[in-house]
C-alpha cells in the first residue's frame, strides 16, 4: 500500500502566543516549533500498516516554509521512506486552499491511503482530512481512535457525543488520527543516521487563490483576577454563596 502522511510544523503547545505588529499573525521570535502532536499518531499508524502488510511505501508531505525540513527529517528518522516539502512563505491557515494544494499533489503520486492528524494545533480547524477526501473522491473516517485493516477493509472507531461509532471503508481512503490510536515511536540513532540518506524533495505548493483572508488576530481578553475565598472546608459555604448569589450558576 502506498501511504501518504500529511504533517504540519506548529508552535509547541507550551508556547505563549504574542501577536505580531501586523495584527494578523503571531510574533515568531522566541517560539519553538514542533511536529503537530496528532500527526505523530498518523505517522505511527502508517508505519504499522506497512509493517503489517510487509510491503508498501510511506511518504510524508507538508506545506510550509523551508524550516519544516527539520520536522520532515524527523519523520524520516522514525521510519518514513520519503519526504516532500511543498513550499510557501504564508501561514497555512486557509483549510480549503491547503486541501486543494495537497489534493493536486496527491493526484500526481501513487497513493491508496492518506493519514493525517485530526487537526493542527495552530489553526485548530479539524477540517483538512474530510475536505481532502472529498476532493480526491476517497472514502474518509475522521478522528479515529482505533483502526484495524483486514482483507482490504478498514474498521475504524471514533468517539461521537455520548457514543462510539464503528465505521468501515475500503481504499482509497483518508483517515484522520485521534490521540489514543497508538503509541508513537521516536527516532533512534540508527534511524537518524539512515534519514540523512533518504530523499527529501521540494517543490512549490500550488495554492489556489485564497478562500479566506485574515482580518485580525487578537489575544482573548484577560480574565479579571479572582478571589481566594479561604482555605479548607470552612470556605465551602462562601463558595456556594458566591456561585448562587454572585455568579448565579446554581
Amino acid at each position: 500500500m502506498d501511504i501518504v502522511v500529511c504533517i504540519k510544523r506548529v508552535p509547541a503547545t507550551d508556547t505563549t502566543i504574542k501577536i505580531a505588529a501586523d495584527g494578523k499573525s503571531i510574533e515568531p521570535a522566541g517560539v519553538s516549533f514542533e511536529l503537530n502532536a496528532y500527526d505523530e499518531f498518523a505517522l505511527e499508524q502508517a508505519l504499522r500498516i506497512k509493517e503489517q502488510l510487509g510491503s508498501g511505501t510511506v511518504t510524508v508531505v507538508t506545506i510550509g516554509s523551508k524550516d519544516a525540513q527539520k520536522e520532515l527529517r524527523d519523520t524520516l528518522a522514525r521510519g518514513a521512506d520519503k519526504a516532500v516539502l511543498l513550499t510557501t512563505d504564508q501561514w497555512v491557515f486557509d483549510g480549503a486552499s491547503t486541501a486543494a494544494a495537497l489534493a493536486a499533489w496527491i493526484k500526481s503520486v501513487p497513493c491508496n491511503l492518506v493519514l493525517c492528524g485530526r487537526q493542527a494545533v495552530d489553526s485548530d480547524n479539524n477540517q483538512l482530512p474530510a475536505n481532502l477526501a472529498a476532493r480526491l473522491g476517497f472514502a474518509c473516517v475522521t478522528e479515529v481512535a482505533k483502526l484495524e485493516l483486514a482483507d482490504g477493509t478498514f474498521t475504524a472507531e471514533r468517539d461521537i457525543e455520548g457514543a462510539r461509532e464503528v465505521v468501515t471503508c475500503k481504499t482509497p481512503a483518508v483517515i484522520s488520527c485521534q490521540k489514543g490510536l497508538n503509541e508513537p515511536r521516536y527516532a533512534n540513532l540508527k534511524g537518524i543516521m539512515a534519514a540523512k540518506k533518504k530523499p527529501l524533495e521540494e517543490a512549490a505548493a500550488s495554492l489556489p487563490a485564497p478562500a479566506l483572508e485574515i482580518v485580525s488576530l487578537t489575544l482573548p481578553p484577560a480574565r479579571a483576577a479572582g478571589k481566594i475565598l479561604g482555605t479548607g472546608v470552612d470556605a465551602v459555604p462562601a463558595l456556594i454563596a458566591a456561585l448562587r448569589d454572585e455568579a448565579k450558576v446554581l
Binding site: 508552535p11 503547545t13 508556547t15 505563549t16 502566543i17 501577536i19 503571531i26 491557515f93 480549503a96 494545533v121 495552530d122 489553526s123 485548530d124 487563490a209 485564497p210 478562500a211 479566506l212 483572508e213 485574515i214 482580518v215 485580525s216 488576530l217 487578537t218 489575544l219 482573548p220
Partner: peptide
Amino acid sequence: RKPVFAGKATMTVNAKK
C-alpha cells in the same frame, strides 16, 4: 471569528469564496 491555538488567540476572517 474563531479561537486558534486552542483559545490562546482569536482569529477573525472574511470569506473570499
